[in-house]
Design a protein around this nucleic acid. Structure first.
Lengths: 223, 223
DNA sequence: GTGTAAACTTGACGCGGTGTAAAGTGTATG
DNA sequence: CATACACTTTACACCGCGTCAAGTTTACAC
């Protein structure tokens, strides 16, 4: 927002008809994207820890100041990197896909499977952002925003379960759609994923199987 | 460990027969304890964020250097504060108590209840330590150690469930004692507690009721 | 060719917070 | 009185973030 570069890098329009547009659009884009990719890579490599802007700059083959020209701050860089990663990995589409299952139960299975394949690719990034949001207002807002779609997915699925109705499997005793979604969301959160896979050593398949099972048993009831 | 004070404050023995022992033991102790209590208070007040050593010193009515004389580093201070808090709140006894229930199922209920009353009192401290352990070897080890007893409690309880045997409620289909304990532990973790209570607004009673229910449904089976 | 502007690089500096070093103060005890 | 202990005060080094100001390079425009 503070950087003059964000504007020109993002949209070729604006009021200034800059003449670089057609001849070397990839070049301008490349620097920004190189920084984003370097940030992402380093964050994953180091699991979100001790990634200095100088490291990013070196990894992207630019000066440290170039990073500031493009992003203005560490927080902005990380937030933009998250946005970039989510886009690269098609977060939204994959959430939609999982939610679009025939029944709520199938959607739960699809959602856990999706998440088990998504989480490892953004783990470092997510940890960095989670740490940042504690002290940074903007990072907190960005994280909130970023997770909104994911939470919405949980809600959608449990509404579906609720809607599936009588003959099918439905929400168990005291759960409401909201409270069930809260638990579903918390169970799928990065720290829980981290605890089960990285700390406790569950493989991806084990994670999928066991978390799916746990969620289904905890929340659903046979008719 | 680096501070000369730790020794005399901790044990009156050692090879140096320091003469302060009987006349003013409370005074020396007081400074150390005042620092610990101030740290704890500030960490809870600020939810583990932006607690500088200068703030601690001011809150404890000592100089910043006194903090270094007693603890040597920020990490050590926080780790010792955690130890102090656990002792003040009788962590070990309360874990034991909960585990000592008649049946595994009752133990699960007691454990969740215990944790729901414990977590809010150490939330800030835990967050600070969780953040610290990412970059600090010693903090990571201390946290591990601190959580070992808690994890052991989960295991003990699920072993109890498993031992309760045929006529009683027991572990459901594919769960083992270990995998069930992993899930139990992750479900009770600070980040999950934070997500459900602080972010999603569950009251303590709601937390207890719903988490107990979820765990029991997820892991246990009627005979 | 010269001019201009975008997209950088280079080097310097301030700031906050941790950690260290050194000298001074107060006080109880032998 | 002297000593040792438990501090305080002041100063400073170090690390990262963030900023500033002055280059340099390249691509067009005229």
């Amino acid at each position: 927002m503070s950087s003059p570069r964000t504007k020109s890098a993002k949209s070729p329009d604006a009021n200034t008809p800059t003449r670089r547009e057609k001849t070397a659009p990839s070049e301008t884009f490349d620097t920004r994207e190189r920084i984003l990719r370097a940030t992402w890579r380093l964050l994953e490599e180091r699991r979100g820890q001790s990634v200095r802007l100088e490291d990013v700059a070196r990894a992207a083959n630019v000066s440290r100041q170039a990073v500031y020209l493009h992003f203005g701050s560490r927080t902005t860089l990380f937030v933009e990197t998250a946005r970039y990663a989510d886009e690269s990995l098609k977060l939204m589409e994959r959430i939609r896909e999982a939610c679009d299952a025939e029944t709520g139960v199938v959607a739960i299975e699809a959602y856990v499977r999706f998440w088990a394949s998504y989480a490892p690719d953004v783990y470092g990034l997510a940890k960095a952002l989670l740490a940042l949001r504690e002290t940074d207002e903007a990072a907190a807002a960005a994280w909130q925003d970023r997770m909104a779609a994911f939470r919405e997915g949980c809600l959608t699925i449990l509404r579906q379960v609720d809607r599936d109705g009588a003959p099918a499997i439905s929400l168990a005793a005291p759960w409401t759609v909201e409270t069930a979604a809260d638990l579903f969301y918390a169970t799928l959160s990065i720290p829980t994923w981290e605890s089960l896979t990285i700390e406790r050593g569950w493989s991806r398949e084990e994670y999928i199987e066991r978390v799916t099972l746990a969620i289904k048993r905890a929340l659903l009831a046979e008719p």
